[in-house]
Amino acid sequence: MRVARWLVAIAILLILPPLLPSFLVVVMTEIAIVALFATAFNLLMGFGGMVSFGHAAYFALGAYAAAILVKQAAWPMLLGLAAAPFAAAAGALFFGFFIVRLTHTYFAMLSLAFAQIVFTVVFKWKALTGGDDGLLNVWPPAWLKSPLAYCYFTLVVVGLAMLALHAIVDSPFGYALRAIRENPRRARFIGVNVRRHQLQAFVLSGFFSGLAGGLFAFFNGSVFPDFAYLNKSFEPLVVALLGGVQSFFGPLAGAVGFKILETYIARQWPIYWPLFLGAAVVFVVVALPQGFVGLLQRRAWRTRTAR
């Protein structure tokens, strides 16, 4: 039954893209990338109880690593993309070493501070990053250049990454991570080295955020310092929050909703988009802390128990 559902989902994803108008193929590609970024972020927030306000740093490290290697060092695209998550993981290891020493609000603030440093370095180091102008013409090779080809490519890469993340959440590592979220002190007394475990989760999260960044660089055809900016850091937060942080697929659902709304609202009334987004965040926090998926789950649970 479970397997059948999965096969149907995969089949739909494989058949759908050629049937869609090409701008929706592009939207679908972007949804996949945002979903990966938000799911990687949610490994920390939903499963580890750690909220980073600077995850754009790892997205940008991945994007810039891929772009720089391809543009400045003339690496082939696939190698550049493969390097992206490792560059981001290295950054996450370095920054995370300090960040996981703090908790709650201070954790969020130090992660933000490091992201601002990454942003400024990217912004100012013109020779390497192109500064404000970014790096342009970071396109994939000819065989991936059509929106449809890149959409399939992204779906496969993101699908594999999501599979890995799903396995991590359900693995012994993921159990211990949730135990830390629930009760760090108790976790220490059953033998978990809490900081080390948190750092490992941070690096894993950075790794997949970097992969999302790398995919986005070739999708966008260019990279800009905004990739490391505050707004980008809040994107996975908002997406995960809208979808629900308690469930693995919450961020995925959030990404679908977020991008579809963005595509229609932001295109029709670009001025009102941030207003809408802000109001949605305020509404979710005040009225729906479990996110929309959480709401649905609760409904489902209620109907099940009512029967």
């Binding site: 001025i271 009102y272 941030p274 207003l275 987004l277 802000g278 109001a279 949605a280 965040v281 305020v282 926090v285």
Partner: peptide
Amino acid sequence: GLILVIGT
């Protein structure tokens, strides 16, 4: 969220 609302 308020930043976005007030900004707009």
